[in-house]
Design a protein around this nucleic acid. Structure first.
Length: 339
DNA sequence: AAGTCTGTCAACCGCTGTATA
DNA sequence: CTATACAGCGGTTGACAGACT
């Protein structure tokens, strides 16, 4: 024989939101017993409540307990939750033991409503805490040559060492993409028979999740303009159908590389992040993608005017305006559980 | 102003490991 | 030893409020 049936199976047990009277009755009862509950099953009857013992326990542990902390989560708490989640996964009760006054339910809700969305906006998988694959990252971009170009470039982001470097490189990539439509639409339209490699690049940049993510991470991102590094590269790629056989690619890529090296911003990881991206943009794989996307024959590089000064994105803006997320990104890869 | 959408969070559901009759 | 409830946990739901159209 086992135990007697649980009260939760009684048809008359009340469910739904708790009233003030019920809260008071529950708190009074528990406080009369020194704040300790020996049997949740017997509590409702003893406290004069028409509730299931399970419901009483949840109400007490998640809401009525005197040591529960109310109010918004602090940056430190948020940082701690992210780090703990990276280590523990969805073990909310274990995570809650590391945050004074926070319940597992509260942390779980906060994760699902705030942190999870923040991470997704940044292109970070909230489950694995890894960067989202390019296919997911660029989900909002319709299938087009644009998609393959962006995917190829974005895939190179994998090679960067820290999350901050990835964000910086991503910003740099998107700067190139978002600025392209301003100046070279005509050339692109000609190159694509009025179609739209570059226009679609621009449109994609306006609409895709990556751009939004970058905007959320890097304040003022939408104001960035195309650099002299990226414009000639994109224009030239857009105009070349047979990239592998054109010697100008080598020269162009070389120029791009040298300019990048000379203009790497003086911030942590700046040069290190810019360089792999330059390689990404100039890579053979990328060249193939663009070559496949372009229909027109090679037109030469007359338009490669490299007179403007290099304008690197304001990568330092992360430091100026969003300490928390920058720090979180940098630290997330090396987080370890506090002892 | 009214209807719709979206975000939030308390509460419930259902499962699992443990305790107990 | 077995059957069953308990306690705890993570997932999900639904009511509500505020924003948006």
């Amino acid at each position: 024989m086992g135990r007697s049936p649980c009260c939760c199976h009684d048809a008359g047990v009340k469910k739904g939101p708790w009233t003030e009277e019920e809260d008071r009755a529950l708190v009074d009862h528990i406080q009369r017993h020194g704040g300790h509950v020996s049997s949740w099953r017997n509590l409702p009857k003893a406290a004069g409540l028409n509730r299931c013992g399970k419901s009483c326990r949840l109400r007490w542990t998640n809401y009525l307990r005197p040591d529960i902390k109310r109010g918004n989560f602090t940056d430190d708490e948020e940082r701690l939750i992210i780090g703990l989640h990276a280590q523990l996964g969805n073990r909310w009760s274990t995570i809650a033991t590391h945050l004074d006054g926070r319940t597992d339910n509260e942390i779980k809700n906060y994760w699902n409503t705030h942190i999870r969305k923040k991470l997704l906006r940044m292109g970070v998988d909230p489950v694995t805490h890894q960067r989202l694959p390019p296919d997911d990252l660029l989900l909002a971009v319709s299938a087009s040559p644009t998609t393959t170009i962006l995917s190829a470039a974005a895939s190179q982001l994998r090679g960067l060492n820290t999350a901050l470097m990835q964000v910086q490189a991503l910003q740099f990539l998107l700067q190139a993409v978002s600025g392209v439509g301003n100046d070279v639409n005509a050339a692109a339209a000609a190159a694509n028979g009025g179609g739209g490699l570059v226009p679609s690049l621009s449109a994609a940049a306006d609409n895709n999740a990556v751009l939004n993510a970058s905007r959320s991470v890097v304040p003022g991102f939408q104001d960035l303009q195309l650099t002299t590094m990226t414009r000639p590269l994109l224009v030239s790629h857009a105009n070349h159908g047979s990239a592998d056989h054109h010697p100008s690619y080598i020269a162009t890529d070389d120029v791009v590389q040298r300019r990048l090296n000379a203009s790497a911003p003086p911030v942590v990881g700046g040069g290190a992040c810019a360089e792999p991206l330059a390689v990404a943009l100039a890579s053979t794989a990328y060249r193939h993608q663009v070559a496949a996307a372009a229909d027109e024959p090679v037109n030469g590089f007359a338009e490669l005017i490299l007179s403007e000064p290099i304008e690197m994105p304001s990568m330092c803006s992360l430091e100026d305006e969003d300490h928390f997320w920058k720090d979180m990104l940098v630290e997330s890869s090396s987080f370890s559980l506090p002892l």
